[in-house]
Design a binder for these strands. Structure first.
Lengths: 338, 338
DNA sequence: CGGTGTTGTGGGACCGGTCCCATAATTATA
DNA sequence: TATAATTATGGGACCGGTCCCACAACACCG
């Protein structure tokens, strides 16, 4: 068993109170005593129990984080941002990968409650389960602040840091038009997802503004996964009349699209130009030059964590939503080379 | 403040002991009493404090995990494996991304100690700092079992689950030879890294076994990063006499290599064939068909966590090293099309 | 009917800290 | 030099659980 504060007290011939004072340097301690205590601590390699401390302080210093999939770099980057701030501010993270599974999310919330987390971060949309929503409301009612990262509008009763999907899609579409494309399509995610809807709207509005028509058959509804995107693109590319450019709603979908293009022995951007959402670092590293809408994911994480800390310090804040505008990175795949 | 066991006891008109018995269903409790207590628990939405429990039990149920970089899928997958087992067995993970930074690793170990972790997992090589090693030894001496995941041989005094880099490189090289290549090179990582050394040895032995010479200038020493790999490959490809195939030691290096090939307007595998280490899911998804040595990373995570649990249950086990043999996935990039 | 189990419940110490309050020692002030 | 203020330390309650032990209630058995 590790040494306790009692052991230190005995060895240094002082009371536990004095040791505690030295540890937290609070209150008065004679210099001589302090050095003696510190020496003993060093000697016995003592480290105070965070557990006991938490119990006494009624502060766990822990933040719960729920992510749909840590392997997705889009989310992993947000976590990086969260971690950075949490480290600096002395908070510990309890990270749970929910696998987009309602049950797992429920269990996580339960575990978080037992751990007495002080705050909660939820990346992307929380489960739509009524039970989950109730749980979240219950937490908030019990002074556990919650901040959403790029979540669903349905939950805008909570604080959140969002990405401006509308604007991102809008900018991308304009860029395609400026590159000289007349007929432009979109490869988009599930309609049930708020970001997908926003992107679609951004796309459509931009088209209208530019005086272009967006044909219904050029709106390809996928599910954010690469497989569906592959089939949709392949089908689309075999049509006689078809778009010369595509706005692609997620990095996974870009992959499926590229596979379709490559299987049909076509070329980007000659046969099909595109701009994607999210970074595609891997592809750019091998020199494929994919133009993208870069969401500032790391920053989302940082801002969310900072916001949470503000809440922790001052419970009486107005609910606030921060919206980050993505930047366009044009690298060539949007060109019109006809 | 959340309800405590005392509140439940009062509301149900029993003692704390009885409530505790109901919660852990240990000891005798009359059925009638049990249901009454459970009703109150439900009503007050009570959840026992893991913190208080830990203090009393002297069990934190927490495992510390140190990873060099969560964003690297190679490591992220191991974490997936670890998580899966930990979840099932009721352990909590304290995950720290060390950024391959000694100081951060030290701080993490310190924090882990305060959290009274019951076991420690270290992904890839722990910091070479003498201080870290001492810390690890100290932990082990204090009954905190440690399991290394794909770590450095220097630390084989600890339990570990490793990937057979030697065998992987060996198999890959043989495959290149069988594909018809005569002159084969290797793009390898830092020599200070044990995996890099192992891969190099596997490569060289395979060459010798096949009766082929490996020229010194065909051994390209990188640092696992894509940038260095890019330059090395580019230089190599401009030589008059050069390998027709490469064994590439990491997925990052493959990226650099491919950029070099693409910039020189060369083709894979016509101008340069290769087999890489680690999966390259992204590239395969877009139909680039990269042959790779697949290490079973998820399994490494699972086995490591299982091993740790064994240790937790029985401290008196012999130190054991599990070595997993990777599998070869040939997808075309190794072909000899001259 | 009294002894012996088996069930069911409560009391209190303990886990390892923090912190308030009392008191002791030292220094400043009148 | 007595008194007040400041500095230094210790004692004990408390945080929210667990668990051992004592004891009460009830059944069974000879």
């Amino acid at each position: 068993m590790p040494a306790t504060i009692k052991d230190i007290a005995k060895a240094a011939q002082v009371s536990r109170s004095t040791v505690s004072r030295v540890l937290n340097d609070s209150g008065y301690v004679k210099e001589e005593t302090r050095t003696r205590v510190l020496a003993v601590i060093e000697e016995l390699n003592y480290s105070p129990s965070a557990i006991a401390r938490s119990l006494s302080n009624k502060r766990s210093n822990t933040i719960g984080v729920i992510v749909p999939d840590i392997n997705n770099p889009f989310f992993a980057e947000m976590i990086k941002g969260v971690t950075r701030v949490a480290d600096k501010e002395g908070y510990r993270l309890l990270l749970v990968d929910s696998d987009e599974n309602n049950e797992k999310e429920q269990l996580a919330l339960q575990a978080f409650q037992e751990q007495r987390i002080e705050g909660l971060l939820i990346v992307a949309t929380p489960a739509k389960e009524k039970k989950s929503l109730e749980h979240l409301r219950w937490m908030r009612a019990h002074h556990i602040p919650i901040v959403l990262l790029d979540g669903h509008v349905k939950y805008d009763e909570f604080d959140g840091v969002f990405i401006d999907h509308y604007q991102g899609a809008h900018d991308a579409t304009i860029a395609l038009v400026q590159a000289g494309h007349k007929r432009i399509g979109i490869l988009t995610g599930k309609l049930s997802s708020r970001p997908a809807m926003e992107r679609l709207r951004g796309f459509q509005d931009a088209m209208t503004e530019c005086g272009l028509v967006s044909y219904d058959e050029d709106i390809l509804f996928g599910d954010y996964g690469h497989e569906k995107a592959y089939h949709l693109t392949k089908e689309m590319l075999t049509r006689k009349k078809r778009p010369s450019a595509l706005f692609v709603s997620s990095n996974q979908m870009v992959l499926g699209m590229m596979r379709a293009v490559s299987e049909l022995r076509m070329k980007i951007p000659q046969d099909l130009a595109f701009i994607g959402f999210d970074q595609l670092e891997t592809l750019n590293l091998i020199g494929m030059n994919c133009s993208t809408v870069d969401a500032h994911t790391v920053e989302v994480g940082e801002l969310a964590m900072k916001r949470l800390i503000q809440r922790l310090e001052n419970e009486k804040l107005e609910t606030a939503h921060t919206v980050l505008r993505p930047d366009l990175s044009l690298r060539g795949s949007e060109a019109n080379l006809k």
